[in-house]
């Protein structure tokens, strides 16, 4: 009807780089690596390094969190944005539960565990999984509780837990050392082992615990490392053969 034909202009949204908004959360982008957890005499201890990786590009970000008021601590490996989304979601939940209601009914770690499993299951059913594994734990009414949820909404509770590379490298050591006494020392040893082997890890880490006395979260700590042995590793040191 008299309209001049529009000249062809390529739609930028059709280019290879374009990913529709509603599918951008379907795969992990910025990720964190292993988190370790174990139960000890007084409660639960979690440890994880502070590294967020965008491919091999590294940035520092905490991966452990405490719900407030706090019966529960948790840490996550996998997609960092999903971890931060979950922190936000749990904060809102707790505000609604504890601040709005104020009736003495509080969510303990077991309730949080069930809630997380439901959130994860809902998201995976939309084919839009929260692409990560969550380790957490809590202490309420004199009972300690260690929880695990992953992107498929697989849930379980055991005495020692690890995610990512830690499952293969640290978990066997965790189980072996579980009867040992100094849990913090154990944790640091595992972080060492992992740092030496996992290229997407860093030597800066945090440890969080929860017990009858409540939660603690450490500042960012640094592992002392020893690299002289690297000289003898083929492909790392100055050797050419």
């Amino acid at each position: 009807m008299g309209m001049p034909p529009t000249p062809y202009t390529p739609d930028p949204r059709r280019s290879q780089a374009w990913i529709p908004f509603n599918t951008r959360s379907e795969q992990p982008i910025v990720t964190g690596t292993s988190v370790l957890a174990l139960t000890y005499k007084d409660g639960i201890m979690l440890a994880g390094d502070n590294l967020a990786s965008y491919g091999s590009l590294a940035c520092s970000a905490p991966r452990l969190s405490v719900t407030i008021p706090s019966y529960t601590i948790f840490g996550a490996s996998g997609n960092m944005s999903d971890f931060q989304y979950l922190q936000h979601d749990l904060d809102n939940l707790i505000i609604q539960e504890e601040v709005t209601a104020q009736d003495g009914h509080q969510l303990g770690p077991k309730q949080i565990h069930k809630y997380l499993s439901q959130v994860f299951y809902a998201r995976r059913s939309k084919m839009d999984s929260l692409w990560k594994s969550v380790l957490g734990g809590g202490f309420k009414d004199g009972k300690r509780f260690l929880l695990f949820v992953d992107l498929l909404s697989v849930t379980y509770t055991v005495l020692t837990l690890a995610t990512c590379y830690g499952v293969y490298i640290a978990q066997p050591l965790l189980r072996k050392a579980f009867e040992g006494s100094e849990v913090r020392k154990i944790k640091e040893d595992w972080l060492h082992v992992l740092f030496y082997r996992d290229p997407r890890s860093t030597n800066q880490y945090q440890i969080t615990t929860i017990s009858a006395a409540g939660p603690t979260i450490s500042p960012s700590l640094k592992l002392e490392t020893e690299w002289s042995f690297a000289e003898s590793i083929r492909g790392y040191g100055p050797q050419t053969q």
Partner: peptide
Amino acid sequence: RMVFNRPIPVNR
């Protein structure tokens, strides 16, 4: 019970 694994608080 399904979302929180908790019997609902009666007052709520």
